[in-house]
Nucleic acid binder design. Structure first.
Lengths: 340, 340
DNA sequence: CTGTTAGCGCTTTCAC
DNA sequence: GTGAAAGCGCTAACAG
């Protein structure tokens, strides 16, 4: 493999000159010299060695991204897509993504190792939880990072997140416009940050619409199809006049559980029961009926994350450390006008 | 950040000694010296700089993995899972995965860049097709790589693949044991390597079972829900006595199309029509009825790929360049005994 | 057994 | 405008 020396020899100049020409640095050269170098590069097929360049500049142009396996039976289509989208955004900014895996409940050692070995310039986090120990660690270590998702509101760190509150708000409005007055929500446990923002959107929309808030209409459970089923079963046990006519789930997986249980109990989705999910999982469009859902703007999010991390790494001032991006309601066929 | 010099100073030895101790190289040391060094490392929290080490050894301990976006409406749960699984297997072997994206139809430049800049020691390919231009390029460039999936049978390169032939064979046997005699398959176009192996499994199993082969029972189309629907519609137009009682699809996505169309035409999946998919997509278990499918052994595959690549990089002799791994039939509720 | 030293390939200061 | 040379942090001959 040719090195900068070979180019220098070939062009009849010093290696410094080659470096200058290639990096458009510092001084200007006679067009002659410039051409000499460029031609030599072309002729011998030279490409700078990234490792050497990194050693000199003590940076790697690498962004670390660690994640854990999705427990069996769960689905995380959002993070699957995010992994790709992040790689793409990073490349557009001249970075690459170095991936890492960590155990489900012990993520910190991986980040520790990452930082100590100088493998990456910064990291991107996703799937954050309340008091996320990774965030605590990275703040403490003063290592450059950005997070897809919020955490402890008292911590100061750069994040980008889907505006779940607004997304659910729109879902409720949509149902309200269809005539629904008894709208329930299948949410995550209260410890879930994003789950609570979604519930807040639910509450906000109901209030704005002048609808009463029934505690029975807010159920909480883990991210699973089973919980969706249980929630629907619970609502089904209410007196008929009090049963919700529409259900919003904080994820498509939960929505699928709601739909499955409802179908088994003889309801017709999109007719006697309306259902809205969240995430826009790939299979949602092929369910029968196809699932109306709130799509997370993954492309914009990864783009924003990379831009943010870039400006942190360049030590430029951040105009915005926190960014909410509005999701989009994808209307399909799982909702209909309120039955009478 | 502390360097090897700091450790040397702290321990009162030369940097060479530190390097030797840390790498267990060469000579043996007095226990005293060894302890001195180890303690110094501990005290100042030293970790070797990976970039410097890489420059010296002209390797990166990085494996490149490039993929393209899944076209909208498609699903590729296998590659989603593979991305994770590969990262995990790589880490177990002391490597990390550097990710790259490439346009759907022009992958080669990305690999070119990768090789020229020395960013990775080797690459892993997935989603191979017949006469895959990436494989052609990598063979030509003599760059270390392994492939998840076969390609042109005349090319010699290391690969690991799911034994799709065997998987479909088992699916047919399963249906045959349930009493089915009219079994159809919704396959990919003939250009698809893995598609043809699956068709081969179908043919093989029918022959072993002594069943006749109807050309009408082998339909080909692109990887989409729509094709599944079209296939079922086609079979539905056959005279009733000739309609298949069971359908195998080469992917879960196609199987979903078959199920959706069948349901709309009044069939009952698992009763008047049996359906088997391929891949074990995450949502399959939550369909109604849940989808019986052939699961690809992703964990074993990524493990095997990394082991293979490792031995190529170490220039050890490969005992096996080509490895087929048997998939597993996951029996759920989309199949039943043949209706009469 | 341990230290001196020459690079790995590149960038960049400083001098001409 | 261009070149000499130092050095990023580490490894591994080679000397002692």
């Amino acid at each position: 493999m040719p090195t900068i020396k070979d180019v220098a020899r070939e062009a009849g100049v010093s290696i410094a000159t080659v470096s200058y020409v290639l990096n458009n640095k510092n001084t200007f050269f006679s067009e002659g010299t410039r051409q000499q170098v460029l031609e030599a590069v072309e002729r011998i097929g030279y490409t700078p060695n990234v490792t050497a360049r990194n050693l000199k500049s003590s940076q790697t142009r690498l962004i670390g991204y660690a994640w854990h396996e999705v427990p069996y039976g769960q689905v995380n289509s959002v993070l699957d897509h995010f992994t790709y989208s992040l790689a793409q955004s990073a490349e557009a900014a001249g970075y690459h993504v170095l991936t890492f895996t960590h155990p489900l409940h012990d993520p910190v050692p991986v980040y520790e190792e990452l930082i100590k070995t100088h493998r990456v310039d910064g990291v991107v986090l996703a799937g954050t939880i309340a008091n996320d120990e990774r965030i605590r660690f990275l703040i403490e270590a003063e290592f450059p990072f950005v997070s897809f998702g919020r955490s402890n509101p008292e911590w100061h760190f750069p994040w980008v997140d889907t505006d779940g509150q607004r997304g659910i708000c729109e879902a409720v409005n949509y149902l309200h416009n269809l005539g629904h007055r008894r709208i329930a929500i299948a949410a995550w446990p209260e410890e879930s940050i994003s789950g609570e923002f979604r519930v807040a959107g639910y509450v906000e929309a109901l209030q704005k619409a002048g609808l009463a808030l029934y505690p029975d209409y807010i159920l909480r459970g883990i991210h699973s199809e089973k919980f969706g089923r249980e929630a629907l079963a619970y609502w089904y046990r209410l007196p008929e006049a009090e049963r919700p006519t529409a259900v919003i789930a904080v994820s498509d997986l939960i929505a699928v559980g709601v739909m499955n249980e409802a179908r088994e109990r003889g309801m017709v989705i999109g007719d006697t029961l309306s259902v809205i999910g969240f995430d826009d999982a790939p299979m949602g469009q092929y369910l029968t009926p196809s699932l109306t859902t709130v799509r997370q703007p993954i492309g914009e999010i990864s783009q924003a994350l990379v831009t943010m991390l870039e400006s942190i790494l360049d030590k430029r001032i951040l105009t915005e450390h926190k960014l909410l991006i509005a999701p989009q309601l994808i209307v399909r066929n799982s909702c209909g006008p309120v039955p009478h």
